[in-house]
């Protein structure tokens, strides 16, 4: 029998709990492939967030730390400064990173911590059941915005890559999506680059992944992917916002 596809070694055998159509599993796999390909698996220490990916500490085969909501970049800082040879990532959702953990992400960038941030933006709080996130689109319905997000009351969505690009210490910022095979391949490239940067000592690198949440968007997988393309991408354009890795 010829093996033509297999699970990356950097993932465990524990079945993932993510909903059908969710982007988390895809991103986990891309990261695990990266660890295998860069031959850094033994050095990786990951930080799992509070949110749907709270169980990510089960899925990655590397040593994992799971801490408080939004504090991933601070926890990753503590790990990296104590073990400079470690390859440290913080995996975060939009509520985690762009709301409660805003100070932590901004200051990790300010200090240009040599860590990698994987930021999953699906414009909603998933684990808690579909509340409005800082990245929820204008007009998008959420359980705490039953009439849709109204800028007069709740302001506008926040674009993290654009915002962090103003910070000198942020060295690599790219926004990708996982809605099509093509985009998944581009996402892989970006994730790999963000970890390569850390190996080279470039400094703070973040990949923002526009992801779909069929469950809390109350959409079929098809509809969710369509929402990503027609609604999310105009607000969150894909692309490289900063790349100083080569310098």
């Amino acid at each position: 029998m010829t093996i033509i596809a297999k699970k990356p070694q950097s993932l465990t055998d524990i079945p993932m709990h993510y909903c059908p159509g969710c982007g988390h599993g895809i991103v986990h796999r891309l990261m695990a492939e990266t660890f295998d390909e860069l031959n850094i698996a033994g050095r990786v220490i990951g930080v799992a967030p509070v949110g749907c990916a709270v169980f990510a500490d089960d899925y990655f085969a590397c040593d994992m730390v799971q801490g408080a909501h939004g504090r991933g970049p601070a926890i990753a800082t503590g790990i990296k400064r104590s073990k400079p040879q470690a390859i440290v990532f913080s995996y975060q959702g939009d509520g985690d990173l762009a709301s409660i953990g805003m100070a932590e992400i901004v200051h990790a960038a300010v200090r240009s911590e040599n860590i990698t941030i994987i930021f999953i933006n699906n414009a909603i709080y998933g684990m808690t059941g579909g509340q409005m996130a800082p990245t929820t689109l204008v007009g998008q319905v959420a359980t705490t915005a039953p009439k849709g997000r109204d800028p007069k009351l709740q302001g506008w969505p926040i674009n993290m890559c654009e915002m962090l690009s103003q910070i000198t210490g942020a060295k690599y910022l790219e926004r990708v999506a996982v809605d099509t095979a093509q985009h998944v391949m581009a996402a892989k490239k970006a994730i790999k680059k963000a970890f390569e940067n850390q190996v080279k000592g470039v400094g703070f690198s973040m990949v923002e992944v526009i992801s779909q949440c069929p469950t809390n968007w109350h959409a079929s997988v098809e509809q969710a992917l369509e929402f990503v393309r027609t609604q999310m991408m105009p607000q969150y354009p894909l692309g490289v916002f900063k790349d100083e890795g080569a310098k």
């Binding site: 730390v65 601070a74 503590g78």
Partner: peptide, 24 residues
Amino acid sequence: GAFVQAESEVAAINMVYGAAATGT
């Protein structure tokens, strides 16, 4: 060792959480 002036006390204790997790 490492010294970090954190952005807040909240961040500082969470940095300790990360560092302590490494056995430091």
